[in-house]
Amino acid sequence: MTAPGSGPARPVLSVRGLRKVFGDHVALDGVDLDVHEGEVVVVLGPSGSGKSTLVRCVHQLESVDGGAAYLDGELLGYEQHRGHLRPLPEARVARQRRRMGMVFQQFNLFPHWTVLRNITEAAVKVHGQRPEEARRRAVELLERTGLADKHQAHPKQLSGGQQQRVAIARAVATDPRIMLFDEPTSALDPELVDEVLSVVRDLARTGMTMVVVTHEMDFAREVADRCVFMDRGRVVEVGTPQEVFEAPRSPRLQAFLTRFAQRQQRADAAAPAV
């Protein structure tokens, strides 16, 4: 397998035939995906379709069983050695991870640190930023996410939406090449979803390259440059939001959208009229 093409059009993230197996369950069954500079790719699909596994594998949080992923043309997690591939040592994997930002479904803020330290610690200790510089940057990021008064709070004192906004600031603070979002609003109470999505939306407007795994259809329609629909570990359909939502070609995507529309209708019917 050769590295994807170089030159100005080289994708930031490139996934080729990625496979991941849990026991006898095939979570990823040969996934291909390119994400270009400044592009926002939203990954949709039913539960268990492999969306989360995809971003976790790209971020090297899970071992991969086949295929390859490249960041700026550099093979992730492995290296060529005497005509074979062999795994990279832990320290070099860590160095590759530093170029990617990850936001988790369960936020995973460090509960023993203040909000400010959550954001600055990696920037200072891993990326070598000067402490006062990292601090200034963190305060600025918190202001942008509307949490300026929370920097001395501990994560457990914040609401879920606030925690997730801090988690996004934490990932952005290290200037990643690409941001990976693993269902960032799935663990939130419905009324807290919008505050998180608006931060993600603002981030997209700054030109950040992003992969967002989500169930929020309206968000996908609005923010995505491209939508990827996955089912049973495969990419079934890729296209602009318009193509995917208005003119789904595959029966599986059609069924998925129908199910979603029905649920939406039920929710609208149940909600009191405004």
Partner: peptide
């Protein structure tokens, strides 16, 4: 919580830093 180890690695901490810091 295993998510803490994930997050530590995601932030680019190496194994030793993840263990002793997080």
């Amino acid at each position: 919580d295993p998510g803490q180890r994930d997050a530590a690695r995601a932030m680019g901490f190496n194994g030793r830093q993840a263990f002793f810091k997080v």
